[in-house]
């Protein structure tokens, strides 16, 4: 792995059931893992993480790019990041008003739901997806 020059960059692939969304070379990428967002640079130790709904952030040709993913996992090896997501959308394509509306309705329905309700988990997952969409489309990065 030592022969991997950091300057060669990192291959980033994002696949969803609808096809390969992104296949590019980046210098760094931030990925929303279940145990917190993590940044990947070339030469990263190989590991696999389950994803939580959130944004994937990277630069392409100096331009910041953001994708929002839902459930899935990411495989990281020295010079390659593979994100396998159930859904993935470009931050620019997100309907902010719709996401905000979803957030309010979900929050309202969750506040009245009993903790044992079997639908609770699903609703909570939906809520976290809505929140991820909102923050990504507002252009918020995990550091801001």
């Amino acid at each position: 792995m030592a022969h991997n020059d950091a300057a060669t960059g990192l291959t980033l692939q994002i696949v969803t059931p609808k096809g390969m969304v992104e296949d590019t070379t980046v210098s760094m990428v931030t990925i929303p893992g279940v145990e917190g967002d993590f940044g990947v640079l070339p030469g990263h130790a190989p590991f696999i993480s389950v994803l939580k709904p959130g944004g994937i952030y990277f630069d392409e040709g100096g331009m910041p790019r953001v994708y929002v993913v839902s459930a899935g996992f990411a495989e990281v090896s020295a010079d390659k990041v593979l994100v396998v997501a159930r859904t993935c959308e470009k931050a620019g394509d997100i309907d902010l008003a719709r996401a905000q509306k979803a957030q309010t309705t979900l929050e309202a329905s969750l506040s009245t739901m009993s903790p044992e309700d079997e639908n609770r988990q699903k609703q909570e997952a939906k809520l976290s997806r809505a929140i991820a969409r909102i923050s990504a489309s507002k252009g918020e990065t995990p550091y801001s």
Binding site: G33, V34, E35, A45, P46, F47, I48, S49, E75, S77
Partner: peptide
């Protein structure tokens, strides 16, 4: 096989 770390 490369030894992977798993999260969680």
């Amino acid at each position: 096989a490369v030894d992977y770390e798993y999260e969680p």
